[in-house]
Amino acid sequence: MVNLLKKRQRTGNILTTFAIATFSLHILVLLLFIFQGLEIRQLSLRKPPNFVQMIDGKPIAAADDLAREPETIRLFVSKTMTAMFNWSGNLPPTNFEEATKPKPDLGILVRTPSGGSQKVTTSSWVASFALSEDFRKGFVGAIAQITPPEVFSTNPNQGMSAQLVIKRVYPPKKIAPGKWRVGMVADLIQKKRGDDRRRITTFNKDLLVRAIDYFPYPLAENSTDLQKAIYSNRTEGLEIYEIRNLCLIDEYNNLNETQLKQCENSKKADPFIK
C-alpha cells in the first residue's frame, strides 16, 4: 500500500513538472512572437534608405536624409528648367526611329489660373513633377498661359519653338536644414520657324529647393515611358517648392533677406511667383 502511494506521488510530481514546463514553454513562445511582431512593426514604420544621385549619376545612400551635393542641386535646377521651357513642337524621342522621325507634340490640356484651359507641352508637363505638388498645379497653369498655340502647329510657316538659354546658375545657398535658394540668370528665346524671328524674354529667377524622400516606382517593368520619365524627375531626392524673381541689384551672395524683399517688392508680380 505504501509503495502504491509512493508511485502515485512520483507520477503526480512528474505530471506537475511536465505541465509547468509546457506552460513555461508556451509563455516563452508567446513572448517571442510578441518580440518578433514589434520588430516587424518597427521595420514597417522605418523610412527606407534615402538614395540621392551624385554628380556622376550614381545613386548612393545618404548618411543625412537632408544632405545634397551643391553641384547636384545646380544640375537638378538646370535640367528641370531646361525641360520646362524647351518647346520644340515634338515629343521627346524614346528610340532611334523617333529620333529620326519625331512625333508631333499634341500638348496636354491643363487648368489656368484664370479658370480656363490651355495646352502645355508634354515635356513641360513631365518636368513639372519635379515641383512640389502644392506649387505644381498653379505653375503649370501659368506656363500654359505663356505657351504660344503655334508651338503645337504642324505648319512649318506658322509653328514656333522656344529654348531656355541659361547664362548662370549660382551656387546653392542654404536657408534651412534641407532647403536651399538657387539663383538662375537665363533668357527665354521664342523663335518662329518660318522666318526665324525671335522674341527674347529675360528669365532671372530665385528657385527654392528642398530635399525630399524618393520612393522608386514599384512596377518599373510594367511602367510606360511617360511614367518612367515622371518618376525620373524625383530620383535626385529634390523638389522645387517656390520660384521668385531674382534680384540683381548686388552680388547674389551678398544679398540678405531684407534686400531680397525690397527687390521683390520693387518688381512687378508675375505668374511665376508663388
Rank of each mutant, 00 (worst) to 15 (best):
V209K: 03
P49L: 09
C247A: 02
V120L: 04
W125L: 02
N233F: 05
T224A: 06
R10C: 12
V77M: 09
A61L: 10
G237I: 01
K79M: 04
F129I: 05
A21T: 11
T121C: 07
T11C: 11
T16W: 14
P148Q: 04
R74Y: 07
F18P: 00
N222C: 03
E264L: 13
K101Q: 14
L106I: 11
G12F: 13
L188E: 07
F51T: 11
I212H: 08
R244F: 09
I249N: 12
I143F: 02
L246N: 03
W125Y: 15
E221R: 11
I34R: 15
F139S: 02
T80S: 14
P149Y: 05
R199H: 13
G138W: 03
A144N: 04
Q36L: 14
A176I: 08
K47Q: 15
A62H: 08
I34Q: 13
R10E: 15
P93I: 03
N3S: 11
P177S: 10
Q145E: 12
P171T: 08
A162L: 04
A61N: 10
A99Q: 14
N256I: 04
D64S: 12
Q42P: 06
L31Q: 13
K101W: 00
D213A: 10
I175T: 15
N245Y: 01
E242G: 07
R244W: 15
K179N: 10
F135H: 13
N222Q: 13
K58F: 15
I55D: 08
I27W: 09
A229C: 01
P218T: 01
P156K: 10
S123V: 05
T235D: 06
R199W: 12
S88V: 01
A229N: 09
L131P: 03
L164S: 02
A19H: 05
V126D: 08
T82R: 15
G159P: 04
I55T: 10
F272R: 08
I146N: 00
F76D: 01
I212A: 06
G89W: 09
S123T: 09
A229M: 12
K137G: 03
E264R: 09
E221W: 11
T121G: 04
L207V: 11
T16Q: 14
I212N: 04
I189C: 05
I243R: 06
L25T: 14
P271K: 04
L91P: 03
I55P: 01
D65Q: 14
